[in-house]
Design a protein around this nucleic acid. Structure first.
Lengths: 324, 324
DNA sequence: AAGCACTATGCACAAACGTGCAGAACGGAG
DNA sequence: CTCCGTTCTGCACGTTTGTGCATAGTGCTT
């Protein structure tokens, strides 16, 4: 990219967003055409030069947010969507808003843990660029399964995060679940694995969705060939309600004694809870039970979810909007 | 204001700025007309719900900024303006950009010192609202003179700052200059004055312009009847180059032995330098000598100025733009 | 209950904006 | 120097957005 174009984009952005000039006026000052200015501005926006932030004064916000915030002790962002949208459209809009909400939280020298799944995939597609230095994106859990090594799917997510924030990407090249807990123990002593684990231990931000065992559209983990029939049976007949980064938990948030976790490659819930900022993105009411479990386990510090699910969470299904 | 209107504004802002919907689509979701949405959005913008920020990656920024930053050790924001604009238009645009640049720096519990003058007046007119708690705006120096008590002029500035940030306003009801230094000493022992001085001592942000003795358009201080003919003569025949908040200094930044300062009500330069964030706004090349003195005195940590003055500061008058 | 002052709404029009397209400018490769 | 592929530019058009104005709504006073 021509560096003088970047400088022009900066000038244009300042004049447009900070001085309220029209594109026409800016075009005259830069001696170019209005359409070029339009393009300069859009490049300024998606190169992260311009940051738009919505700061919701906590006290005046819709009571729905206040309710969730107080009950679960998380910073919550309710994404307004109409009920008539289908699952895919809702996910798309939640993902877009999530991507723009986490942007401002990312800073230089951050170590960002990222899970994978349909939610994170959608989020990764909507990230806006932001220039940071010496940041690292680290994969939270393995993505290999019986059919594929899972590399491309999860690594696409990782790569998008990396290029949006100009960060190094550290993949976690292991399966989602080992067949034998003993293999995991062995691998966990490998230096290549330990390097990733060490990074995970230093995470300042973690971003993940939740899986819910009883979701209508089963999450990737439950349908994608990551678990065999036997495992699925065991899950279905246990009191497990969901997972975060392929680590399972019960409705009360406990996870002790869940055998599958010993073969899972995701971070133990107690480790995850060490991370300063833990951002959970949820779209779709069918994930409600998994979400409740995750909140009971205090896995998230920040929660981004669609309005319908938010209402379900606090038992206000009937209300049309939060504020009247 | 109807609280549900505020909630709608928030919803609309989220959908418009974070989900990229058109106003038309938002209107359908909110069951109202598109024009109402347009108005909701503009109210969201100027109530500070929506914050637009331009983050200029320091390393890729125009070299002009880098030059000033390195030479004077200040964070600099150069406001792009064409040379053909007259003084008033330039001031207006610098002021608008300055107002929007300082917005993000203001936070809850801040104590903000504000000077007065034509520059600050212009800035105060363009402030964008931002909700903060327990912030205080404190006047840096008295504004009374021989003709008026100066209350309305300076207090308008203060009031605008106060209402933009929802902050308490503390005026400084003294003249700009005392006739006798001894009166100042006496007043400085008054409890009402000491309360203001105590606040000033705790400032976290100070915002001021500069006066320049040899400016084409003499600053308010030099023309507004604040000083009598005798004082002006003394100034003209001394080596004083300018002032900040009615405290004078020389080209090298020194201020010792300038008698007028003993009668001035502004903060001593050494006190001003204690403030963590000191924002200096300058518009117009004729202030160049005052500005150079202020920079030599290290009075500012942040400098916002128009492009022509910036070029003059580093001796690049000829260059059309910074980057080609 | 009526009157009044003020604010919010929708319409219609004008202004501002985004984008497909065709041509210009640029930058190697031969 | 010419060719070719790529990127940038301005135009033209359709879409999206801002705003003056007439009207409807709201709340307060008498």
């Amino acid at each position: 990219m021509d560096p003088s174009r970047h400088a022009d984009a900066l000038r244009a952005a300042q004049m447009y967003y900070l001085q309220d000039l029209t594109m026409d006026a800016i075009a005259r000052e830069l001696r170019t055409s209005r359409s070029t200015v339009s393009r300069l501005l859009s490049s300024a926006r998606d190169s992260g030069l311009v940051q738009v932030q919505i700061r919701n004064p906590l006290d005046t916000g819709p009571e729905l947010e206040g309710l969730i915030r107080r009950r679960y002790g998380v910073d919550v962002h309710v994404v307004p969507v109409v009920e008539t949208l289908n699952e895919a459209e809702t996910l798309d809009r939640v993902a877009m808003q999530a991507a723009r909400t986490i942007g401002p939280l990312v800073d230089s020298n951050a170590i960002i843990g990222v899970a994978w799944g349909s939610t994170l995939s959608a989020v990764s597609r909507h990230l806006t660029r932001k220039i940071t230095h010496d940041s690292v994106i680290v994969q939270l859990n393995g993505a290999g399964n019986m059919h594929t090594t899972g590399i491309t799917y999860a690594s696409d997510i990782m790569r998008r995060f990396g290029s949006a924030y100009g960060a190094r990407v550290e993949q976690f090249p292991v399966p989602a679940f080992f067949d034998h807990a003993s293999t995991k123990t062995a691998m966990w002593n490998e230096r290549s694995v330990q390097r990733v684990l060490a990074l995970q231990a230093k995470m300042s931000i973690a971003i993940f969705g939740v899986g819910s065992v009883d979701a209508d559209y089963p999450s990737h983990v439950y349908a994608g060939g990551y678990l065999d029939e036997n495992d699925l049976n065991i899950l279905a007949h246990s009191d497990v309600v969901g997972d975060v980064a392929t680590v399972f938990f019960r409705a009360d948030g406990s996870s002790d004694g869940i055998l599958l976790n010993e073969r899972s490659t995701g971070p133990a819930l107690s480790e995850l809870r060490q991370v300063r900022r833990r951002i959970c993105v949820v779209s779709g009411v069918s994930k409600i039970n998994g979400l409740k479990g995750a909140l009971a386990a205090r896995l998230a510090t920040d929660l981004i979810l669609d309005e319908a699910t938010a209402r379900r969470l606090v038992g206000l299904e009937g209300m049309a909007t939060a504020s009247r």
